[in-house]
Design a protein around this nucleic acid. Structure first.
Length: 761
RNA sequence: GCGCCCAUAGCUCAGUUGGUUAGAGCGUUACAUUGACAUUGUAGAGGUCAGAGGUUCGAGUCCUCUUGGGCGCACCA
């Protein structure tokens, strides 16, 4: 019978997709394989009980946006998490890596809106219901793309437990969380100044605002001739809404005006301007006097509260001037209003000078458009009480953050936390579970509950919740929380009973590791910790591991405009998934950005080939096959019992080093040092096992030496190789599995997949 | 403005309780190679570990300062 022929080079395209399908269909990604201590899979042995099965290893995958396309950042997430998942599975721990996708409110709505506009469809003509239907269609069409791409990266996650943030269960969790917080007084509604994005036409949270440095002008002027103080500002148009001028209390120049009010007229707008003293004012800046615009500046809003100043809204949600801005300005865009007012000031000799000035423009992190602070009625979460608990669990080590230095960043944020604006004026997302009705007296009644109240006339709040509200529940909402609540009868106050959980929640929660990029520490990680503590009474994970951001080989940010972004989907067919995974692992330290260029990936493609080829050599020699054709020989090795008496110096050296490597790799992985583990394996496999031992073994094989030495050498080769493959498997799953399958021809006692082998200990 | 981090070979970076002669990849130089390995091997060159001071028997590692770079928070006076 002709034996299998092994090609000279590793061709990832021939293997990767087939291998992945085999894994997935075999159920190897499910925690139920529970194959502790043996080399065959045992399905269905899980009792979902920590006392019976031990502690599981659990990771919730950061859910990518449903409309997203795979990029190197996903490559990093999948690589690091898959290394952990595969390692712990090899250790025999029931391992759950739970995948899913995020509805990504603003991002998705914008994408679909744009696409519809291209077809000539306006979302407002369509109406809310039809538009949301369209987004669901979109999700159905494109939602699977990202998950199939994640499969291409070799992710060993349990797709049978895949979740989406708008699933029924997760939506129930969102409503439950909202109602619960409202009941505790931690959610409130009110008219406050918020960051408004006129382009996305919604309020956004403080941390969704980014600052971009830009050149602008600082204008010095007086409101009118009768006003004694000159102010300086970069935004004259907002001054139409000024109700005060603030100076530093110790500024001698303005002492005599403090407390006085002046009637002024700014291009037809009559205003009363009060002079107030406030510590926040820097006497050295500008003229030392600030025009206070309560409605359109965060700082001024606070001053207005303290000094009891009126609020005049001169800019509306469209980014245009309101009626309050006066008839000369009503309806103008802010930029037009600015020009017009400067012209007027100049004509009336009120403009004293213009300085070049570098300031920070606030922009929306989603669309990049300028953010307009304005007062608006929104829902907020009271953060202080949540922050205190969340801070404590990191302080006392319940949650460990890697790298440690992020502790300080985390604490700093918690200490300076402000309330979180959670309502968004969008259609795509979780609609706020609040209903309003006007009663006979014309007053508004408010109902907060799991579903619409009985009776006619109730109208649900049209807004949806910030995407991060549902993401914050991810570690437990994906596992079934809050199961068993009768949603029909649920309303505030909730009949809350702890322990109403599913098997999954009961066994897998709290999770083990939260692995993600450090740039979403506040958006996501902090809020998961807060929500986890608040709703489950437990920290949602033990360890937070932050990987670095992937940059190009010159350490520049990857971006489309620079043209330096590497597309994993181009690179996978070219070099193989394993090469990309290694390139993302070796040289990557937690929290530290990592440069990755095509050259680096190429280097690890060579390594994939080295593994393939060195293994081919070992298999051919061990089976006494044909090195030229690659055909395996008839000899089968039945066991790997090594005869200590026959060991050569080379044997002893490699076995000793092998033990050392096993110990170190295990240590590194336990300490989350993936780079060191990967680098060590790379170096060991190539420059010790292949360059040194395989070379030495050539003199211990063949007709010139005894059959006993031949046999012993084969066993040393196979033993070291098979164990090294297992250690390499978490990093390079495909080539190791492909080799493993061939290796089974020569040494049939190996497990049917390397995924369910045993970690060499 | 407040805070955090970084500075190690030509380039990109490892080096976590202070401990032999400071490492890797890429690049570079020489040699070998019809080789298991179009993707190979062997050998080499290349570092006052940013600068100054301090602690110590001993500092790339700990402390202080200086210089240069990055980041976070706050802020559109």
């Amino acid at each position: 019978m002709a034996k299998k022929t092994i090609e000279k080079t590793w061709e990832p395209k021939e293997f990767e997709e087939k291998i992945y399908q085999k894994w997935e269909s075999s159920g190897y990604f499910k925690p139920e394989i529970n194959m502790k201590g043996n080399s065959g899979k045992v399905l269905g042995q899980l009792a979902y009980d920590r006392e019976v099965n031990g502690k599981p290893f659990v990771i919730s995958m950061p859910p990518p946006n449903v409309t997203g396309k795979l990029h190197m950042g996903h490559g990093m997430v999948v690589t690091v998490e898959d290394i952990m998942a595969r390692y712990h599975r090899l250790l025999g721990e029931p391992t759950l890596w739970l995948p899913g996708t995020d509805h990504a409110g603003i991002a998705t709505q914008t994408v679909v809106d744009k696409a519809l506009r291209k077809e000539g469809i306006n979302k407002n003509d369509l109406g809310r219901e039809k538009f949301v239907e369209k987004v669901w269609e979109w999700k159905g069409k494109y939602g699977d793309i990202i998950t199939s791409q994640i499969r291409r990266l070799g992710a060993s996650c349990d797709w049978s437990r895949e979740r989406f943030t708008l699933d029924d269960g997760l939506s129930l969790a969102v409503r439950r969380a909202f109602v619960d917080l409202y009941g505790k007084g931690l959610i409130y509604r009110g008219e406050y100044i918020v960051n408004w994005c006129p382009r996305c036409h919604t309020a956004i949270a403080d941390d969704e605002v980014e600052h971009v440095e830009q050149k602008s002008k600082l204008y010095y002027f007086k409101y009118d001739k009768n006003f004694p103080i000159t102010i300086a500002t970069t935004r004259p148009e907002t001054k139409l809404g000024d109700t005060a001028v603030a100076v530093n209390p110790s500024d001698k120049r303005y002492q005599r005006y403090i407390g006085k009010s002046f009637d002024v007229e700014i291009d037809g707008n009559k205003r009363q301007i009060k002079v107030v003293a406030d510590r926040a004012v820097d006497a050295k800046f500008g003229t030392g006097a600030v025009g206070v615009t309560p409605a359109h500046s965060m700082v001024d809003w606070r001053m207005a509260e303290e000094h009891d100043l009126p609020v005049i809204k001169v800019i509306n949600e469209e980014g245009r001037m309101t009626d309050e801005a006066g008839e000369n300005y009503t309806g103008l865009k802010v930029t037009e209003a600015k020009e017009k007012l400067i012209a007027w000031l100049s004509c009336n000799n009120l403009l004293e000078k213009e300085d070049e000035y570098l300031n920070n423009l606030s922009v929306c992190y989603r669309c990049g458009g300028a953010v307009e602070p304005l007062p608006s009625k929104q829902w907020f979460v009271k953060m202080r009480p949540l922050a205190e608990k969340a801070k404590k669990v990191v302080e006392d080590g319940t949650i460990k953050i890697i790298p440690e230095r992020f502790d300080k960043i985390y604490f700093h944020w918690m200490d300076n936390i402000r309330d979180w604006c959670i309502s968004r004026q969008l259609w795509w997302g979780h609609q706020i579970p609040v209903w309003y009705k006007k009663n006979e007296k014309g007053e508004e009644e408010v109902f907060v509950g799991m579903q619409a109240p009985d009776g006619a006339g109730w109208v649900q709040d049209p807004d949806v919740l910030d995407t991060w509200f549902s993401s914050g529940l991810w570690p437990f909402s994906t596992l079934g929380w809050p199961d068993n609540i009768d949603s029909k009868k649920c309303e505030y106050p909730l009949p809350y009973a702890p322990g109403m959980t599913t098997c999954d929640y009961n066994y897998f929660y709290p999770t083990t590791v939260m692995e993600t990029a450090y740039d979403i520490i506040f958006f996501w990680v902090a809020r998961m910790i807060m929500f986890g503590l608040e709703f489950t009474g437990k920290a949602p994970f033990e360890t937070v591991y932050f990987h670095g951001l992937v940059r190009d080989e010159h350490n520049r940010k990857m971006s489309k405009s620079l043209g330096n972004a590497l597309d994993p989907l181009d690179l996978i067919p070219k070099y193989g998934t394993d090469a990309i995974r290694m390139a993302l692992t070796v040289g990557s330290t937690p929290g530290q950005d990592i440069p990755v260029g095509e050259g680096k990936i190429k280097g690890f493609r060579n390594f994939s080939n080295k593994i393939w080829n060195a293994s081919r050599y070992v298999m051919l020699r061990a089976s006494e096959g044909d090195l030229k054709s690659g055909e395996l020989g008839q000899t089968i090795v039945s066991d790997l019992k090594i005869n200590g008496g026959l060991l050569t110096d080379a044997d002893r050296d490699i076995l000793k080093q092998h033990e050392e490597v096993k110990k170190k790799v295990t240590e590194h992985l336990n300490k989350f040092k993936f780079s060191l583990a990967g680098e060590l394996l790379y170096d060991y496999f190539w420059h010790t096992f292949a360059d040194v031992y395989i070379e030495a073994s050539k003199g211990q094989l063949g007709e010139d030496v005894t059959a006993e030495l031949n046999n012993n050498t084969r066993r040393v080769l196979l033993s070291v190789l098979s164990e090294t493959l297992v250690m390499l498997h978490p990093f390079m799953p495909f080539v190791t599995e492909a080799v493993w399958q061939d290796l089974r021809e020569v040494y049939p006692s190996l497990s049917e997949s390397i995924m369910i082998a045993e970690w060499p200990g």
